[in-house]
């Protein structure tokens, strides 16, 4: 029961934060709320017994992303225009998409169900990791071995983004062809 109360409390806070981000008028405020949102979701992951994702989300999602946004604001502008008129179409799109998703949940196995089909491969890991590795943490073992190629791909994504950002922000020399602005 205690667990359920905490669960509902954190989820309520998450929903409130998400709504606050949408309603937030200043950009710095939105950036801070985004950080808070990531941090709250990290706490919820901890409640759900997924500490590895929780720590990464707290460090990378709440930390790095927020700093990126704040850094961008510091060299662009912190001024955001007021949305003048309410648009109906975006709301319709998300309500429809959300309704489709909720329809999809109706056949889902219930939250926490140990018999859910989703654990098929996960159970193989739980069985095999202690036999094949000396590492007690199953997440680390899977990340580094069975699905190591995804981790390699993830590193490549970081390399790609790094190259992309460097390429975008690199200042050009005066004698080079200029970006056309008129």
């Amino acid at each position: 029961m205690f667990q359920q109360t905490v669960d509902i409390l954190v989820l309520g806070l998450l929903a409130a934060t998400a709504l606050a981000v949408v309603r937030m008028r200043t950009l710095i405020g939105a950036a801070m709320l985004m950080g808070i949102y990531s941090f709250l979701s990290a706490s919820w992951m901890l409640i759900l017994d997924a500490p590895d994702v929780a720590f990464t989300e707290a460090a990378v999602g709440a930390g790095v992303s927020t700093i990126f946004v704040l850094a961008t604001l510091s060299i662009t502008t912190i001024r955001a225009k007021r949305q003048t008129k309410f648009q109906f179409a975006p709301l319709a799109v998300v309500v429809l998409t959300g309704a489709v998703l909720i329809y999809g949940t109706l056949d889902m196995p219930h939250f926490g169900d140990p018999e859910a089909p989703v654990h098929r491969v996960g159970n193989r890991y739980i069985k095999r990791v202690p036999e094949e590795f000396k590492i007690p943490n199953a997440v680390t073992a899977v990340l580094g071995s069975y699905r190591g190629f995804d981790t390699f791909g993830e590193t490549t994504v970081v390399l790609t983004a790094g190259l992309g950002v460097l390429c975008l922000l690199r200042k050009r020399r005066e004698d080079e062809p200029k970006v056309v602005t008129e």
Partner: peptide, 10 residues
């Protein structure tokens, strides 16, 4: 990839 068969690996 990495020598892991399809049931656990990629």
């Amino acid at each position: 990839l990495g020598g892991w068969s399809a049931d656990v690996g990629i």
